[in-house]
Amino acid sequence: MRLSRFASLTSALLLAAGAALFGAGTAAAAPQADFGYVALGDSYSSGVGAGSYDGASGDCKRTPRAYPALWAAAHSPQTFSFTACSGARTGDVLANQLGPLNSGTDLVSITVGGNDAGFSDVMTTCVLQSESSCVSRVNQAKAYVDTTLPGKLDQVYNAIRAKAPSARVVVIGYPRFYKLGGSCIAGLSEGERTAINGAADHLNAAVAKRAADHGFAFASVVGAFTGHEICSGSAWLHSLNWTNIGESYHPTAAGHSGGYLPVFTNAA
């Protein structure tokens, strides 16, 4: 009887030890929790200029050549929601893009602010009007960035954090458009190109400040695009494109894969 009880006890202990050992092994081999990535923003995130647009995205012109889709293809998150849209302003992000965000979202990327500041109108003015008109319009945009844009960015950033409290949020900036003293022999004057580059720096500084104040990462692409601006001879940005005017001053496919993608990857 005693031997039987001892054998039973020994067997039970061995089973318990085995269960603990192999149970730990099973837990280690269990699949990772879902990793969710949501890509928000304007045409610089949707991929205008990179081509091969997804017809289902309509006027938003999302493309698998854009940096969010390239990152998702390389890293295989369990969920990937791509809501960035061409022409989006801060209000459009708030109204139309935040649906996929939730408490399980791990990573968010966003480019926004350029359309609020009047990017398209600035470039139209500079292309079609005088240098003085160009500089004046640039200064109007910079004043907007100083006085109005920060509050609009705050609304977007607050909404992202409220919906995705645990996510890493990477706010990405805009490139300088022109290589000064570069290879261009026609088009805008050096004064206009200088003013436009200065406006990009001004916008980036404002966006970076608001991102930092919300605890978000800011990723600058200026360095990545240095040597690849318009007039560089190796541009990753479309110049004025009369055939497809909407792609003007947007990154090419190479600009997304060689510029935006590595910058975002390093920040994510």
Score class of each variant (00 low, 15 high):
residue 5 R to L: 15
residue 6 F to I: 15
residue 6 F to S: 05
residue 9 L to Q: 03
residue 11 S to T: 12
residue 13 L to I: 13
residue 16 A to S: 13
residue 18 G to L: 05
residue 20 A to L: 09
residue 28 A to D: 14
residue 30 A to D: 07
residue 31 P to L: 01
residue 32 Q to R: 14
residue 36 G to H: 14
residue 38 V to Q: 06
residue 38 V to F: 00
residue 39 A to Q: 00
residue 44 Y to R: 01
residue 44 Y to I: 09
residue 45 S to T: 10
residue 47 G to S: 05
residue 52 S to T: 11
residue 52 S to L: 08
residue 55 G to S: 15
residue 56 A to D: 00
residue 57 S to Q: 07
residue 58 G to L: 06
residue 59 D to G: 13
residue 59 D to Q: 14
residue 61 K to I: 10
residue 62 R to M: 00
residue 64 P to V: 12
residue 68 P to D: 12
residue 70 L to T: 01
residue 71 W to Y: 10
residue 74 A to G: 01
residue 77 P to C: 08
residue 83 T to Q: 00
residue 83 T to S: 02
residue 88 A to T: 11
residue 90 T to A: 00
residue 92 D to E: 10
residue 94 L to M: 09
residue 95 A to R: 10
residue 96 N to I: 10
residue 97 Q to P: 03
residue 103 S to Q: 15
residue 103 S to G: 15
residue 105 T to E: 13
residue 107 L to A: 02
residue 108 V to Q: 06
residue 109 S to H: 01
residue 121 D to G: 01
residue 122 V to I: 02
residue 123 M to S: 11
residue 125 T to C: 10
residue 125 T to Y: 06
residue 126 C to N: 02
residue 127 V to I: 12
residue 128 L to V: 10
residue 133 S to Q: 15
residue 134 C to R: 08
residue 135 V to G: 04
residue 135 V to A: 06
residue 135 V to W: 11
residue 136 S to C: 08
residue 140 Q to G: 07
residue 143 A to Y: 01
residue 146 D to K: 08
residue 147 T to H: 02
residue 151 G to K: 12
residue 152 K to G: 00
residue 152 K to C: 00
residue 153 L to D: 01
residue 154 D to P: 00
residue 155 Q to H: 04
residue 155 Q to E: 04
residue 156 V to Q: 01
residue 157 Y to Q: 03
residue 157 Y to C: 03
residue 157 Y to M: 08
residue 158 N to S: 15
residue 164 A to Y: 03
residue 164 A to L: 06
residue 166 S to A: 12
residue 168 R to I: 09
residue 172 I to Q: 07
residue 174 Y to L: 06
residue 174 Y to N: 03
residue 174 Y to P: 05
residue 176 R to D: 10
residue 179 K to R: 14
residue 183 S to L: 15
residue 183 S to M: 13
residue 183 S to Q: 10
residue 184 C to H: 01
residue 185 I to T: 15
residue 188 L to I: 05
residue 190 E to W: 05
residue 190 E to N: 11
residue 192 E to C: 12
residue 192 E to P: 01
residue 193 R to M: 11
residue 194 T to I: 12
residue 196 I to A: 05
residue 202 H to K: 10
residue 203 L to I: 07
residue 205 A to V: 14
residue 206 A to T: 12
residue 206 A to W: 09
residue 207 V to D: 00
residue 211 A to R: 00
residue 211 A to V: 07
residue 214 H to A: 14
residue 215 G to E: 11
residue 220 S to F: 03
residue 221 V to Y: 01
residue 223 G to H: 06
residue 224 A to D: 00
residue 226 T to W: 10
residue 226 T to Q: 09
residue 227 G to Q: 13
residue 228 H to N: 05
residue 228 H to L: 12
residue 233 G to R: 09
residue 241 N to I: 13
residue 241 N to D: 14
residue 241 N to W: 11
residue 244 N to A: 13
residue 246 G to N: 11
residue 247 E to D: 15
residue 251 P to A: 14
residue 252 T to E: 06
residue 258 G to N: 04
residue 262 P to A: 15
residue 263 V to R: 01
residue 266 N to K: 12
residue 266 N to C: 08
residue 267 A to W: 04
residue 267 A to D: 06
residue 268 A to R: 06
